[in-house]
Design a binder for these strands. Structure first.
Length: 354
DNA sequence: AATCCGTGGAA
DNA sequence: TTTCCAAGGAT
């Protein structure tokens, strides 16, 4: 059954593999470029293919090699990543590029262990790069593989408890050759047929081997724990505009929310209904007659929802407190603002005169 | 081990 | 509208 699953899947993949910008067609004599494989894998962490494609194109055009990327300025790379989310990835991406360029002669390590030691490369990504770029046999387990394997073996234990069993089962069906194609085939299967909801079992090349399908309840797997509801936080954001067409933006500290990115000054983001004993009163970057926009800006993060009241002040000249810079409004799209602050900018531009 | 970290598309 | 969740990693 083991060899049968891999063989059936690879045959299906040879015919149905998605054409993706970072992928070499199965059977091609061409070897994938490790830089492009790495870049795509990092971008694809918790991120959809559709969202990644334009960013991958922009990055590879602007920085065609890992050495070129390593030479880029931090602010350039962070701005190029703006909107893609999980900004620690961009910080680690640059750190990784600099290690590869500076300590490995511009070549990526070709083993899982060597890759795993690099910033931003964890167990999944190390296995994926080793298999796809270096033809190593590696056991590649992502969320797609977890779903497919949970169904193939009808694994009853809920995630994340089932992870070791899923890993062992994946190991058991991973072929000695073409492990990279096998991994990509599993991910294609998970994204096109073996879907979280409404899996297309009748079209699946593995249906005869799939315990969940034979039970008639593929959609029941993987079993997941109930999720917690998101708390709601509130805060203020300050839009400080100079009469000659500039807005005050800051560089956010690394290691916190949206770390390393540009942003607008904000208050702390407090939990709703919580402590009146708020430690610090919200202080705008400049004293003055701030006026609030009628419409607040709502944004949803992974683990909380945020509502920001937008306060606005126009000045003729000022030197606000803190580190920041005046940015030309005409080029606000190039400021590298993450989506939260891009929303604020849009709200001000569109409804700013109330 | 559990928590933190973004975003947008699909249903 | 709400809910789900996507090629996870770091701490």
């Amino acid at each position: 059954m083991k060899a049968g699953v891999a063989a059936a899947l690879l045959t299906h993949y040879d015919r149905h593999a998605r054409a993706l910008p970072w992928r070499v067609p199965p059977g091609s004599a061409e070897r994938p470029d490790p830089y492009r494989v790495w870049l795509s894998e990092v971008m694809l962490q918790q991120t959809t293919v559709a969202a990644v494609i334009p960013y991958f194109a922009a990055f590879t055009t602007r920085w065609p090699t890992v050495t070129a990327l390593a030479s880029a300025e931090d602010a350039e790379v962070m701005a190029a990543w703006a909107g893609l989310g999980y900004y620690a990835r961009a910080r680690n991406l640059l750190a990784c590029a600099r290690v590869v360029a500076g300590q490995h002669g511009g070549r990526f390590p070709d083993t899982e262990e060597g890759l795993r030691a690099l910033p931003g490369i964890g167990g999944y990504t190390a296995a994926a790069i080793a298999a796809i770029a270096f033809s190593r046999r590696a056991v590649v387990v992502d969320a797609n593989v977890e779903r497919v394997v949970s169904r193939l073996f009808a694994i009853e234990a809920p995630l994340p408890t089932s992870r070791p069993a899923i890993r062992d089962a994946t190991d058991a069906i991973t072929p000695e050759r073409r492990a990279g194609d096998f991994a990509q085939a599993m991910m294609d299967l998970g994204s096109s047929l073996c879907l979280p909801r409404n899996p297309q079992c009748l079209l699946c090349p593995l249906r005869e081997s799939c315990a969940a399908h034979l039970e008639g309840r593929a959609e029941a797997y993987p079993v997941k724990p109930p999720k917690k509801d998101k708390p709601h936080r509130l805060g203020r954001v300050w839009w400080l505009e100079r009469a000659d067409g500039y807005v005050w933006i800051e560089r956010r500290e690394a290691k916190r929310m949206l770390g390393g990115m540009t942003g607008l000054p904000t208050s702390a983001w407090d939990k709703r209904d919580s402590d009146k004993r708020s430690p610090s009163k919200p202080e705008p970057p400049l004293a003055g007659e701030w006026t609030a926009l009628n419409q607040p800006v709502d944004h949803v993060f992974t683990h909380f929802r945020l509502t920001l009241t937008v306060e606005r002040l126009r000045v003729t000249d000022a030197r606000p407190e803190g580190a920041g810079q005046w940015w030309p409004l005409a080029r606000i799209g190039e400021a590298g603002l993450p989506t939260l602050f891009a929303k604020v900018a849009r709200a001000v531009m569109e409804g700013g005169d109330d």
